[in-house]
Design a protein around this nucleic acid. Structure first.
Lengths: 226, 226
DNA sequence: AAATGTGAAGGGCTTCACAGCC
DNA sequence: GGCTGTGAAGCCCTTCACATTT
């Protein structure tokens, strides 16, 4: 069973992994609404995907549904949590205590499970020692992960400092980075980076609205060609 | 030329559109470094993609490179800007003036081109009228887009308010939404939503680090976007 | 009767490899 | 010689459709 999970986990397609957090969030909401089971049709609709896709995704984790009934909400949430590796605890280090860093530090959705914001980091002496969200801001040097401790670094500094911060995170042993600064980072191949940036998102939205197509479906043809 | 651009624009694959903003950003950096031309190899490396992928992406816009030489930085940046529809001006409305909203309002990378933060919105009477980043915070009712004005709504409120804010944005005529709240939104099919959420990103990073990307033979920086 | 799980088909994206052009 | 642009091949993901199970 443990082996089965591990075996399945290794085969989960990238696209599926990217959607699992969404399913997990919807399941939590559904659970608080008092539902104990849910069909693929309903869960898919609330997650914004097709039911076929949802079932394929879930089947990559194993067979946890009941034909003719649906999925048990709590059980399914547990299996997704396990597949994502959230049984283990991850330490998060947020670097940069400007507006964005403070927003992330006080962000509600993180404390659910699996993650603990362990370091709030800033190099400005006027900021070090202050308290944000009930936690003390420390100097970069305080970032000393324990051996085998999974650490995720979050960069919330202005763009010009981002690369330097990334270098220091990597030097401290961090191998996963979430970058909110509008900059492209250069990192060794054993370090993974995910970038989140408002400008990029706005540009993608602008393109899609201009070309008048939603998720899929209605296309709107316009001017003609010569 | 205008026709050619429009023709090409219609055929740009989704995956390519998602990467164009990255190329654009790298080109800007490269330009400030004084380079006037760049090869696909170099641009690809700095963007974190393969050179073949980069050339395929760019060829979807047209043939703007010179064989044996590379791409003219300024020219290419201009064509990407045009393809993304940033020649036109877009108005941005940020809803929610907490830490996150203030961070986004004062975010530097947005003013580059194509976007203007036109409304900072909050419903708290104690916040309305205050000034953030040199701009006055207004009540939601002040959001009255001009006809044919492209507006993008940015949700920076706590999760419980997100759906209601989305509904009001849509009622005001907004058809593109960028959602920073950790909530899944339900919207009509002609409205597009992109969600950005730290918890989701952390979960994806955790999964990948845990599975050490061994099976696939580790690639370098994979997707920078969701 | 109802809903899952999944082979098979289809579509899109990436990689390869080289022809074409400067 | 060097680098772009692109058909072709391969891979991954999505969709379809239905057999399977409760």
């Amino acid at each position: 069973m443990s082996t089965e999970q591990a075996a399945a986990r290794r085969d989960i397609p990238d696209a599926t992994v990217n959607r699992l957090p969404v399913y997990l969030r919807v399941l939590r909401k559904v659970a608080t609404d008092g539902h104990t089971t849910i069909s693929s049709e309903t869960l898919a609709e609330q997650s914004g995907v097709s039911s076929a896709k949802l079932r394929k995704d879930l089947s990559a984790l194993g067979s946890y549904g009941v034909r003719g009934v649906g999925y048990d909400v709590a059980t399914l949430a547990g299996h997704i949590t396990g597949a994502l590796g959230l049984e283990r605890q991850w330490a998060v280090a947020i670097v940069g205590m400007g507006n964005l860093g403070r927003a992330l530090a006080t962000y509600g959705g993180i404390g659910v499970k699996g993650f603990e914001i362990k370091w709030l980091i800033d190099d400005d002496p006027r900021v070090v020692g202050s308290v944000v969200g009930g936690q003390k801001v420390v100097h970069f040097d305080a970032l000393v992960p324990h051996v085998d401790e999974g650490v995720i670094g979050v960069i919330a500094t202005p763009a010009p400092s981002a690369q330097q911060v990334a270098d220091r995170l990597i030097a401290a042993g961090v191998r996963s980075i979430l970058n909110f600064a509008p900059a492209v980072l250069t990192v060794p191949s054993d370090v993974q980076v995910r970038g989140v940036d408002m400008a990029t998102e706005l540009q993608i939205l602008a393109f899609r609205e201009q070309n008048a197509r939603g998720p899929q479906g209605d296309r709107e043809m316009k001017e003609l060609m010569a």
